[in-house]
């Protein structure tokens, strides 16, 4: 083998080991919490949640520069990555209606259901305290699984306005939830 190629192969191998190590560390650090988190949004579908976690960590590994961030920022970012994967999956399922089946009810796996019901009441109350403009954009985007562009069309306002109102609306919502003790 020519020396240059040999050198390159060596570097690639060590890069692979590094990559494998990083992904193992990612699983170790974030795999468990991420799975618990994702299960809530997959309607407790464990298989789907596991796929989402795996895809999330693979994408994270592809953006390894972000893995130099502090852990709380990595975590916040991983949640956004996982959420997009779940939303994409849900959209795909909803265009194939025969695949939409009620999630298996597994009471043992959802010990926090009463906690969530309580949180739902608090969140609904907080949303009601927002201005009409702010509440409307939160409802027309996230709560109805719509993108900014789709909501803009329905509301008849520019996408930039939806984005901006969503920003101030979410900030206001966060303050309200913090006051009620349900947001960090």
């Amino acid at each position: 083998m020519c020396p240059v190629l040999g050198h390159l192969t060596g570097r690639l191998e060590s890069a692979d080991i590094d990559a494998e190590h990083r992904i193992a560390v990612l699983y170790q650090e974030f795999g468990g919490p991420l799975l618990r988190h994702v299960r809530k949004s997959t309607g407790n579908d464990l298989q789907w949640a596991e796929d989402v976690v795996q895809e999330t960590l693979v994408r994270a590994w592809r953006h390894s520069a972000r893995l130099q961030w502090e852990p709380s920022l990595i975590w916040a970012w991983l949640l956004t990555v996982a959420r997009r994967i779940v939303i994409d999956g849900r959209r795909r399922k909803s265009v194939r209606p025969h695949e939409v089946e009620p999630p298996e009810v597994d009471m043992l796996a959802v010990p926090d259901s009463s906690e969530r019901a309580l949180s739902a009441i608090v969140v609904a109350e907080a949303l009601r305290s927002l201005s009409e403009e702010h509440r409307e954009v939160i409802e027309q985007t996230y709560l109805r699984d719509r993108t900014i562009s789709e909501a803009a069309e329905i509301l008849g306002i520019p996408p930039g306005t939806v984005k901006s109102r969503l920003y101030y609306g979410i900030r206001a919502l966060r303050v309200l939830l913090q006051d009620k003790g349900v947001a960090g």
């Binding site: 809530k40 975590w75 916040a76 949640l79 019901a117 949180s119 969140v123 949303l127 939830l177 960090g184």
Partner: peptide, 10 residues
């Protein structure tokens, strides 16, 4: 980061 899961509860 925590807001979407609160909205999910609802």
């Amino acid at each position: 980061a925590d807001i979407p899961s609160r909205l999910d509860d609802l």
